Computed example of a mutant assay.
Amino acid sequence: MFSYPAVLDELALASKRLPDSPIRFGDGGEYRIEIPSVESTEAFRVVVQECERQGVPLHRISQGSGITVLTDDTLREYVAIGADHNVEVCLFIGPRAAWDGNAASALTADGGIFGARHIGVAALRAAWEDVERAVDSGLRSLLVADEGLIALIGQAQAAGDLPGDLIVKASALMGIANPLGARALEQAGAHSLNIASDTTLGDLAAYRQLTRGALDMYIEGQDGLGGFMRYHDLPEIVRIGAPVHLKFGLRNAPVFYPAGDHLAAVVASSAKARVTRARAGLEHLWRGRPGAVPSPVDGKRDGVPVPA
């Protein structure tokens, strides 16, 4: 007869007690602000301007279209803006199965979980070339949705073949489902884990029980991820989940991946709206937990780009 795994008892206990997280970012912060879906450098400048105007500390922007569709000049511009404003710039690695035409299963209802992954050795090699291009351009933060690529990057980083300040962010599209899976990704080389936005506070405590790195949560998620809004939970999310990236997507907003000049207006207006949502979220946090400590925006942080 099998014995009940002790780790499940530990997770159940954490889920009931909801303890304060003792972990912090390296700079002492409990939380950072991430603005996702910043799909152009123009939108990046809008985000920087709006954050300054609305008093929102900006620590990270992320992008879903991927570096594959960016010109070298645009990639360098992302790097320059991030370096100038001390903002982590996290861009998606491609190619992805739902887009590259090599995996029909990724387009089916049952096979959708493969959509953002790199199916086969050729796709994995192409993704690795994206990684090399990103790092050579000065990027120090990569958005990844494939376990194999995370492991490959982790091995290269451990061997000193990739920079030590490189951040690997496990995408929400990976479908991280439980704390044991999250720990496996962290052990493989992920530094930042995007868990589901409808994660209960009890399960958040369980994630924190087994992981040491940053957790990422959409406080407001886009419709494709459920459209959940967790504004009133923000004080507890920070208390229990620190260190945590607070992400602000938009419900009832168009999906524009991969973006381009033909979608410039909606990309920019959506980016501005996300900053306003972040301000609303911060006000909820300040009212409910006024002592919550953000990472300083002017401190040295891994993931901030280094112009080549």
Score class of each variant (00 low, 15 high):
Pro5Asp: 03
Leu11His: 06
Ala12Ile: 08
Ala14Gln: 04
Ser15Glu: 07
Lys16Cys: 15
Leu18Tyr: 02
Pro19Leu: 03
Pro22Ile: 01
Asp27Gln: 00
Arg32Leu: 14
Ile35His: 01
Val38Thr: 09
Val48Tyr: 11
Glu50Asn: 07
Leu58Gln: 07
Leu58Glu: 08
His85Ala: 09
Asn86Ala: 06
Gly94Glu: 00
Arg96Cys: 02
Ala98Arg: 03
Ala104His: 00
Ile119Lys: 06
Leu124Cys: 15
Ala134Trp: 03
Gly138Cys: 04
Leu142Arg: 00
Ala145Asp: 12
Gln155Asn: 11
Ala159Val: 09
Gly160Asp: 10
Pro163Cys: 02
Gly164Leu: 12
Leu173Phe: 13
Ala182Thr: 04
His191Tyr: 11
Thr200Gly: 10
Gly202Trp: 08
Ala205Tyr: 03
Tyr207Gly: 01
Tyr207Lys: 04
Leu210Asn: 05
Tyr218Asp: 10
Glu220Met: 07
Gly224Cys: 02
Gly226Tyr: 13
Gly226Ile: 15
Gly226Cys: 14
Gly226Asp: 14
Gly227Asp: 05
Phe228Asp: 09
Met229Ala: 11
Asp233Tyr: 10
Glu236Asp: 15
Ile240Cys: 01
His245Met: 08
Phe248Tyr: 05
Val255Ala: 08
His262Asp: 14
Val267Ile: 12
Val275Gln: 06
His284Asp: 10
Arg287Glu: 12
Gly288Pro: 06
Val293His: 08
Val304Pro: 01
Pro307Ile: 09
